[in-house]
Design a protein around this nucleic acid. Structure first.
Length: 337
DNA sequence: AAAGCGAGCAACCGCTCAATG
DNA sequence: ACATTGAGCGGTTGCTCGCTT
């Protein structure tokens, strides 16, 4: 039974061509993402609306980083997968520059095998993963109960963090970047809507005037990247618009610059008391602890405010990431990460 | 040089969820 | 309250490429 395919007649399948990418990108630049049903009709693309959305979110969307997962990201994924299970979208919410598909692929093709090897190697020495509340399970060995408990704990912690933040920031909510943080924290944690959030107003917006550079400019860059690439990588040209690279080995910088602000100190204290951290040196307030920072929000910032994006790219571990990594450091060390 | 094989990844499929009438 | 429909998510497939034999 189930629903019939959303669009099974006359739609093109298979890899996207650069021409299709250009059409899609230019359309979205003009109208913004969303209303995917209208995209094929309005663009003339012989593609399913789902295919258009997928192509955009996983490939063409600005601000996404592809390939070359860092150790930190790897650890994040491992922890989050243990905590959340195969909820790739939720995991991707904590790695705003990564797509769920990318993370999923990385997990399935690399991390899972790597972890299984570690587990097999360590199984002779008894349980490596158990122990207290940090019962980090991997997909093959995880216990549903502990996962559920951890989800609840996670939600509780997030809720507490939001409350504490709200209290800590109430005097100067309006002006600081932390208000954005708070608002982002208050928005959908699972990052499941496609609404753009205006980082200034914290209101959802479908107006893309601020989200996108001029279409002509982007298309020009798109074409430029396309022309420069070999046929093999031609399909990557569109992504070069935002990534400046097609190959996963290019153009990805992961520096560890840290920024702090006055409010950061306050937040640090708040979180310190909340989670028991001792050091927040690397905590950067902008977009931190904001799993709800949607990829589209990143897009928003990326296109209009490159510096902010740089901040995202260059950011050290967020508080929550630190928590994720610290909370089970022992287990990870045992596994040799 | 060519065939075989495996890894990586883009894209599809089917399902669920949420919004709307 | 129910049906419909669009959007989103996770599992899976199949293609491509690089390495090995």
């Amino acid at each position: 039974m189930g629903r019939p395919p959303c669009c099974d007649k006359g739609v093109k399948k298979g890899p996207w061509t650069p021409e299709e990418d250009i059409i899609l990108v230019s359309y979205i630049q003009e109208h913004g993402p969303g209303n995917w049903k209208a995209v094929p009709a309005n663009t003339g693309l012989s593609r399913c609306s789902k295919s258009c959305r997928l192509r955009w979110t996983n490939y063409l969307r600005p601000g996404i980083k592809r390939g070359n997962f860092t150790d930190q990201e790897e650890k994040m994924i491992i922890h989050l997968q243990a905590l959340l299970g195969n909820r790739w979208a939720a995991i991707a919410a904590y790695l705003p520059q990564r797509t769920d598909n990318d993370i999923k692929n990385y997990w399935n093709t690399y991390l899972k095998k790597k972890l299984n090897k570690k587990l097999e190697a360590g199984s002779d020495q008894g349980s490596l993963l158990g122990g207290g509340h940090n019962n980090i399970g991997f997909s093959s060995v995880s216990q549903p109960m502990s996962r559920g408990q951890w989800e609840r704990r996670l939600q509780t912690d997030i809720h507490m963090a939001k409350k504490a933040l709200s209290e800590a920031l109430s005097p100067n909510k309006a002006s600081s970047s932390s208000s954005t943080l708070l608002a982002e924290s208050n928005s959908n944690l699972s990052n499941e809507n496609s609404t753009f959030y205006n980082s200034n107003t914290n209101k959802p917006t479908t107006t893309q005037s601020m989200c996108y550079a001029s279409s002509a400019d982007n298309i020009a860059r798109l074409l430029k990247g396309w022309m420069k690439n070999t046929p093999k990588s031609a399909s990557c040209a569109a992504s070069a618009v935002t990534q400046n690279s097609c190959s996963s080995s290019e153009g990805i910088t992961t520096t560890k610059g840290s920024t702090t602000s006055t409010s950061t100190v306050e937040l640090s204290e708040t979180f310190e008391s909340l989670f028991g951290y001792e050091s927040f040196d690397n905590y950067s307030s902008n977009s931190e602890f904001s799993p709800s920072l949607s990829p589209e929000a990143t897009l928003f910032q990326d296109e209009g405010k490159p510096d902010i994006t740089t901040g995202l790219i260059d950011m050290p571990f967020s508080l929550f990431e630190k928590w994720l990594l610290d909370v089970d450091a022992g287990s990870q060390e045992k596994l040799g990460f």
